[in-house]
């Protein structure tokens, strides 16, 4: 610590413009994130208004117990991680594919329209998506069963069928995020040095070769960073999505329950801030350890791509 103090101060002086440029963002982060972060202690407290956050009595790890008590902790943690991994893989592949297709396409209008249209789902709230899903799959009047009946086939009861829900959720996630993610990769492709493509053209490379040897390696830093960022949220389930799309359906909970929905159901009647904090802290700590690990691996292979 002592040794590094000096170079730090020196750097502060030498690179003061750089430090000043960091300042506005840092101030916002300190105010909005670091100061309230002290509230993490709530996870170990039984909060009351009179004593406030720091004066309320300590309760040790008691606020964490409910989470592990009913034996569901493992299954919801597993579901959360698996879903996030599946979303990550499927969405990444789909988004990169779309980005490459769009970047190579020549037709200006076609490109504009498809790209804009792919952004539409982002604006449809999960509540509405949930209502659509219900309208499509409900047993009596759903579109799917109405269609099956008109063909003289047996109707199916999707809502009691565990096997299909992971696919529905993955599909819905891909649908909602395709426009959003595509833009991100598109921007990354735009960043690739145009001369590389020119050189390849001169060498007589075909489309596939250019994609394989220039485009894909070119967007690698973006892929890696998005992957690392995704690891950081791997323990967090998109609450609205899981709650609304499945309709909080108890029949398929085994395969659709994630940490956030489980905690919500547990604390629905109990307004206990400490217990909410405890679940959050569990998610954060776990993700943090994973990120440290992943970041270390990346740093070993490709130091430039690491997050920190």
């Amino acid at each position: 610590m002592k040794r590094s103090k000096h170079p730090f101060l020196q750097d502060l002086k030498e690179n003061r413009i750089k430090w000043l440029m960091l300042l506005p963002a840092a101030i916002v982060v300190i105010l909005m994130c670091y100061i309230p972060m002290g509230g993490i202690v709530l996870a170990f407290k039984e909060y009351n208004y009179h004593d406030g956050i720091f004066g309320s009595p300590w309760v040790g790890f008691k606020n964490f117990e409910y989470f592990f008590q009913s034996g569901k902790a493992w299954s919801v943690t597993r579901n959360t991680i698996l879903y996030n991994l599946a979303f990550l893989c499927v969405n990444t592949v789909l988004q990169i594919t779309c980005a490459i297709l769009l970047s190579e396409l020549a037709g200006k209008w076609f490109k504009r329209i498809t790209q804009s249209v792919m952004f539409f789902p982002y604006f449809i709230s999960w509540v509405v998506v949930g209502a659509f899903i219900y309208n499509m799959f409900n047993f009596e009047f759903g579109a799917v069963n109405t269609f099956l009946r008109s063909l003289g086939l047996e109707p199916v009861d999707i809502y009691s069928n565990e096997a299909v829900w992971p696919f529905i959720l993955i599909g819905v996630s891909a649908f909602k995020n395709v426009g959003y993610g595509t833009v991100m990769y598109l921007a990354s492709i735009m960043n690739i040095d145009g001369q590389l493509y020119e050189a390849a053209d001169l060498d007589g490379a075909n489309m596939w070769q250019k994609i394989r040897h220039i485009t894909l390696p070119g967007i690698r830093p973006t892929v890696v960073i998005l992957f690392l960022l995704a690891i950081g949220t791997i323990m967090k389930g998109d609450f609205q999505m899981f709650w609304q799309v499945t309709g909080n359906n108890p029949m398929v909970l085994e395969v659709t329950d994630v940490i956030d929905t489980y905690v919500t159901r547990s604390l629905l009647q109990l307004q206990e801030f400490g217990m909410t904090s405890a679940a959050g802290l569990y998610q954060s700590t776990f993700s943090f350890l994973l990120v440290l690990l992943a970041n270390k691996l990346v740093k070993k292979v490709e130091p430039d791509y690491a997050l920190f």
Binding site: K62, Y66, Q69, S70, P250, R265, S266, L268, Q269, L270
Partner: peptide, 17 residues
């Protein structure tokens, strides 16, 4: 509180069925 949370969870899922 912990039991209340755990049992509420059951009430909101299995018991509902």
């Amino acid at each position: 509180k912990n039991e209340v949370a755990a049992i509420s969870e059951i009430y909101n899922s299995d018991y509902k069925l």
